[in-house]
Design a protein around this nucleic acid. Sequence first.
DNA 1: ATGACTTCAAACGTCTGATGTCTAGCTTTT
DNA 2: AAAAGCTAGACATCAGACGTTTGAAGTCAT
Lengths: 230, 230
Amino acid sequence: MAAPLTEAAIQQVRQLVVDGELVSGQRLPPEAELAESLGMSRSTVREAVRALVTLRVLDVKRGDGTYVTSLRPELLLAGIGAAADLLQNEFTLELVQVRRILEPAATAMAARQITDAELSDLEACLHQMSVASSHEELVEYDEQFHHIVATAAGNATLASMLTGVSSRTTRGRAWRGVIETSATARTMAQHAEILAALRARDPKLAEAAALMHVSTTEAWFRTVLGAAGR
Amino acid sequence: MAAPLTEAAIQQVRQLVVDGELVSGQRLPPEAELAESLGMSRSTVREAVRALVTLRVLDVKRGDGTYVTSLRPELLLAGIGAAADLLQNEFTLELVQVRRILEPAATAMAARQITDAELSDLEACLHQMSVASSHEELVEYDEQFHHIVATAAGNATLASMLTGVSSRTTRGRAWRGVIETSATARTMAQHAEILAALRARDPKLAEAAALMHVSTTEAWFRTVLGAAGR
DNA sequence: ATGACTTCAAACGTCTGATGTCTAGCTTTT
DNA sequence: AAAAGCTAGACATCAGACGTTTGAAGTCAT
């Protein structure tokens, strides 16, 4: 049979992490040693390490060594965002649908435990959006707004996944739609409604406000993709 | 500044895919040509290719060439499952919580459009589970059951994410709990209830049945992690 | 003794070139 | 025309060399 040595190396090192023989923050043996102990050349080990770096399991510090990352959800699930950007148009609506499920749930959770500091941050975001002078700025603070809400839900895994499905490109396209349809005022109002619900610590209301917001985005994509897409 | 050539190569090739210059199924130039056109050595190009293979963007066929994958959600989001297995115990509960959000929603969607063939498959799974003779077999058919439901929801992106958060290790641990607490009969009954709701094409009921099921799992993990975990 | 500067060994980053192995497609044979 | 064998091209792996960066030990002036 074939000899996918690199793949084997990836699995072996990965297994060391799963089994707890390599813990978060720990330093790996130098590439040369690893190569010898795994019975392969340094090039092959490097390819394996590169793969695990891509998965955010390892972190290489040049001139120093290779370390195991914190293995936190924010890192390991960051790939979702990258993946979302690569999905074809065909799946844009699917992404929004997932967001439609996650965002209301997360917003409801946030309503139960959001801090005053986070509420202030949200208000600041809202203000920045209202005075934004460029499309990029608008998207930037919109992203920040939703990220704060997701984080306030107190579930890092959920927050990472939600952030991932709300990738920047999708968000950018949605805002272009908002502007084209002169719905900026309405969208801003929706954000204000979400903030108000959170401030009132009203989970049900927050859930509803978030659903309204995502649904607007969904409707926009449905018309665009339905008309031009295919 | 530093010269992360490999990283640059990854981004460049990735950008070619995003920009549509490399479409799904297309073959890339040979490593040698790529190296020359990107102005770097073959080793470096290989590391970049390896990274993109890990992300399931490229697929290397030895002796033949390197191709762009289908870029479907099942591929690009498969990493979620791998990531879930690497998450520390600390985040197990977070994963279950996400599943608690996604699974009822997906099950409700499935109730609206599941096919008769899929219903038959589910029944077959259920039967296999009832006569399973080993722990592995049980987990196997349980996994299959939920995967069919997720797929029947008609959203490949959602299905991939749901499958990802229901990683095999987590599922295995949950079943161990089911057996330890002699709750096998009850768990089987819950699956039957989900199937019944789907068969009745009753979204609300299906949602409720799925929520009940996931909540049982969540409760189990809460006791285990609360007691021994820390 | 303290702080800043210098030196240096270790480790990663990149390149080169050679050899092994596999695949697809063509050629030959039947 | 179908099956067996052959070959060019492409990936897999290896070995070795050299460049760059980093952290820390060591040095020196204050």
